[in-house]
Design a protein around this nucleic acid. Sequence first.
DNA 1: TGGCTAATTGGCATTATAGCCAATAACCGC
DNA 2: GCGGTTATTGGCTATAATGCCAATTAGCCA
Lengths: 132, 132
Amino acid sequence: MDERTQARMEAQANVFKALAHPSRIFVMNELAKGERCVCELTEMIGSDKSTVSKHLSILKQAGIITDEKRSNMVFYSLQAKCVLNFMACVEGMIETKLKKLVAMHAIAVKNKDKQRSTGNAAPRSATGNVSD
Amino acid sequence: MDERTQARMEAQANVFKALAHPSRIFVMNELAKGERCVCELTEMIGSDKSTVSKHLSILKQAGIITDEKRSNMVFYSLQAKCVLNFMACVEGMIETKLKKLVAMHAIAVKNKDKQRSTGNAAPRSATGNVSD
DNA sequence: TGGCTAATTGGCATTATAGCCAATAACCGC
DNA sequence: GCGGTTATTGGCTATAATGCCAATTAGCCA
């Protein structure tokens, strides 16, 4: 990877890094509904004010959200709307993964039952084939 | 944030975390063109074989890529195609940010010139207004 | 089987993140 | 200006991520 490519990859990774935290994902979901002040987000997240402020500054620095000072409050709002599309896709990925886990667990349970009834210590198959 | 929400946000954040590294972004770009074996990616990235392998396992664990063993090599390929759309959007964000930086730098240079010619130590305006 | 290549895993040192408290800054109303 | 509120920054510790080396596993082929 040459230096030029390295720099481009790093810049992209930084955007993903900015989103790589539960609280910041929460903020994104909240800002999708409309602008919010730091105090509101702090209340909802339940961390220290300073912690939330730092999270917001990370998102802002990445160019994902913007801030606007009005009176003595700061309101944040979504800038990169395309993040929402991807978050929807991620939602789907999680669903898929969860279903797969559930299915695998069901197979494991089945195999365990089989073992119990036959006294066989090793499961018949890793693919879930228990049709004998 | 209740426990249920926390878990959902964490699951989403994990996908972003998986993408939050230059080498892993590079892998995504490469797999967008087609499947690649670990050896190819290792060659291109220039890190240790074990390091690349760990990066790949992180992406796989997140459900973003899949692997397939053929002969004594392991080929990885893209699973979550929607990542590419978002990466294109991020590309655009970086462009925008870069342009803004260049513009701000131009203004700063202008102000500096102004200072030099007038002997004024403080810049006239933070907004770049140098119209006097 | 034994040697070869490809890939993964364990272990460990280095570096980066996260989150709290305290201090500071910015703005309002009096 | 002075106290009250809102937000950011600095400093610190605890935790997590990274990347190398060494050891191990898995498949090929002679």
